[in-house]
Design a binder for these strands. Structure first.
Lengths: 211, 211
DNA sequence: TGTCCGATCTGGACAGTGCTTAGATATAAA
DNA sequence: TTTATATCTAAGCACTGTCCAGATCGGACA
């Protein structure tokens, strides 16, 4: 998760403090959770004064945006990793969905920051839907490839949105206590995720194809 | 939304300050959003000192739980209101889903508090899955009624969870800017919601019935 | 080489927060 | 009426996000 070494180049006093602050924030997030993520704690973790971050970010929200950006890229990487793992579209989309939920389980605090900032702006990050390597585009492209050239854009878009919403809902609630009995019934977390995702039937482009 | 009159009985100094605080919190939430909801602001709104709430709630989290509880009940009412609006299961479940998302759109701040506290506790409120009049039970019962007696509990539960996750995902993202083009394509917000919900196909008990 | 300018960082301050403690007050019970 | 208990206030603590004046350092220019 790019908590990478800080001292690659140090063009300024501290040496790329901006990146160091984002890294520090992610470190705190993974170690102590979202409630411990104050601007002052981040500055402390990075070894600078509480006012230093204001030379690189307009306010706390802008720092969180930068943190979220790292998260979205990592999520995209995780989803891209299962690409080509199976030729069957339905099971491929299920695996992409599983990768999505897995990310949210492995980085719950980061995932929370990602959607907190998204809700504040009423929008997923700009780049995700346009840039070809974004997580959102990955899902859309998978649907498009499977659907073929005759399917209207609106159907592709609908399938993408539906899949994204379903995956997000599952991601936020997969840890809820209510679901434990069902997890056992499906042989653990992985089986449960696959069951829900394939039950939803959202990962079938056929539906979009036939309309 | 139960911002009801305060002075029904006043057995204590202030007169049911507990309820007054919850009402005040909801008022602030609807008026200024979640970021304005501090314990001190709630006390101010209710006309008491900043320390007064601590005689009725252990801490801020417990106040938020009480606020969220009001929200869950209101959500349940909204979903129950469409009950019996159509004999067809698929369209009924779609309407229940629409009612769910509509609630989140009309009370975004309250909806946010509901899930913030749920995530903190890694659980939906206790009563919802057991009490017969809870929103969660409403969905499960609808599935059960439609499926008939031969369908195993685990399938009913799976369908319920899948539908709930999908509705929540859509609720959190239905306001995102990315979806605007699609909304126009489906003739406004209502059409968009129905399209996504029925595309997901999650509201069909048949799948559960056949397994 | 020396000087200066602007980017970068610090120390200190302000208002606001959640929460605690000690004391005041009013209600219900004796 | 006295007493006990629930309720509320006042004051204070440690913390937060944010701003400001001043210190400091790097690179450009002379």
């Amino acid at each position: 998760m790019s908590t990478a070494a800080v001292a690659d180049t140090r063009p300024y006093h501290h040496g790329d403090l901006r990146r160091a602050l984002v890294d520090a924030a992610i470190r705190i997030l993974e170690r102590e959770g979202p409630s411990a993520l104050s601007l002052r704690a981040v500055a402390r973790e990075a070894g600078v004064s509480p006012a230093a971050p204001y030379h690189h970010f307009k306010d706390k929200g802008e720092l969180l945006e930068a943190v979220a950006h790292v998260g979205w890229e990592a999520l995209g990487d995780g989803m891209a990793a299962v690409q080509g793992s199976t030729p069957d579209l339905t099971s491929l989309m299920t695996e992409i969905g599983v990768a999505y939920v897995r990310f949210s389980q492995e980085h719950p605090a980061l995932y929370r920051v990602m959607y907190d900032t998204a809700r504040d702006k009423d929008s997923l990050p700009e780049g995700m839907q346009d840039k070809e390597d974004g997580a959102y585009c990955l899902v859309r492209n998978t649907f498009r490839d499977a659907a073929g050239p005759g399917v209207p854009d609106v159907d592709i878009e609908l399938a993408t949105i539906a899949a994204w919403c379903a995956a997000h809902g599952l991601a936020e609630m997969s840890g809820f206590a209510q679901f434990n009995p069902l997890k056992e019934a499906f042989g653990g977390d992985a089986g449960f995720l696959r069951a829900v995702l394939s039950h939803l039937g959202m990962f079938q482009a056929k539906q979009a194809k036939q309309d």
